[in-house]
Amino acid sequence: MTNIAFFDTKPYDKVWFDHFSGEYQAEITYFESKLTHKTAPLAQGYEVVCAFVNDTIDEQVIEDLYQGGVRLLAMRCAGYNNIDFKAAFGKIHIVRVPAYSPYAVAEHAMALLLSLVRQTHHSYVRTREFNFSLNGLVGFDLHGKTIGVVGTGKIGRVFIDICKGFGMRVLAYDPYPNKSVPVDYCSFEELCSESDIISLHCPLTEESFHLINRESIAKMKEGVVLINTSRGALVDSQALLEGIRSKRIGGAALDVYEEEAELFYEDRSSTILDDDILMLLISMPNVLVTSHQAFLTKEALQNIALTTLKSVESYEKGDVMEHEICYQCDTCHNVTGQRCF
Rank of each mutant, 00 (worst) to 15 (best):
Arg118Cys: 10
Pro11His: 06
Asp255Gly: 08
Phe7Val: 12
Val287Arg: 01
Ala253His: 02
Val183His: 01
Glu206Ile: 05
Cys50Leu: 14
Leu112Pro: 02
Lys221Tyr: 12
Ala111His: 09
Ala88Lys: 07
Glu207Gly: 09
Asn131Trp: 00
Ala233His: 14
Ser123Ile: 04
Glu206Arg: 14
Arg169Val: 06
Phe341Gln: 05
Glu194Phe: 00
His323Arg: 12
Arg76Tyr: 09
Arg76Pro: 06
Ile57Leu: 09
Ile83Thr: 11
Lys145Arg: 15
Met284Lys: 15
Tyr12Gly: 04
Leu200Ser: 08
Val138Gly: 10
Cys163Ile: 01
Ser314Glu: 14
Cys326His: 06
His121Gly: 00
Ile57Ala: 09
Tyr12Arg: 12
Cys50Trp: 06
Glu63Trp: 00
Leu65Pro: 02
Thr290Glu: 05
Tyr327Ile: 06
Tyr173Thr: 05
Met168Tyr: 02
Trp16Tyr: 15
Leu306Asn: 00
Phe209Glu: 09
Asp55Ser: 13
Ser193Phe: 03
Glu27Arg: 11
Ala104Leu: 08
Leu281Gly: 04
Asp184Gln: 13
Thr229Gln: 10
Gly243Asp: 06
Val53Gly: 08
Lys14Gly: 04
Arg268Gly: 01
Leu226Val: 15
Ile272Asn: 11
Leu114Tyr: 13
Ser270Glu: 11
Ser195Thr: 05
Tyr103Gln: 12
Tyr185Asp: 05
Lys34His: 13
Leu288Gln: 00
Asp184Leu: 03
Thr9Gln: 03
Ala111Asp: 07
Met168Gln: 00
Asn54Ser: 11
Thr39Pro: 12
Arg268Met: 07
Lys38Gln: 15
Gly250Cys: 04
Asp141Tyr: 05
Glu207Cys: 07
Lys154His: 15
Ile244Val: 07
Leu65His: 03
Gly90Tyr: 06
Asp161His: 04
Arg157Gln: 15
Val289Phe: 03
Leu191Arg: 00
Gln60Met: 14
Leu191Cys: 00
Ser283Asp: 13
Glu313Arg: 14
Gly139Thr: 10
Glu313Gln: 15
Glu266Ala: 07
Ala305Thr: 00
Glu266Asn: 09
Val183Gln: 01
Thr39Glu: 10
Thr205Phe: 12
Ile57Cys: 07
Glu47Gln: 15
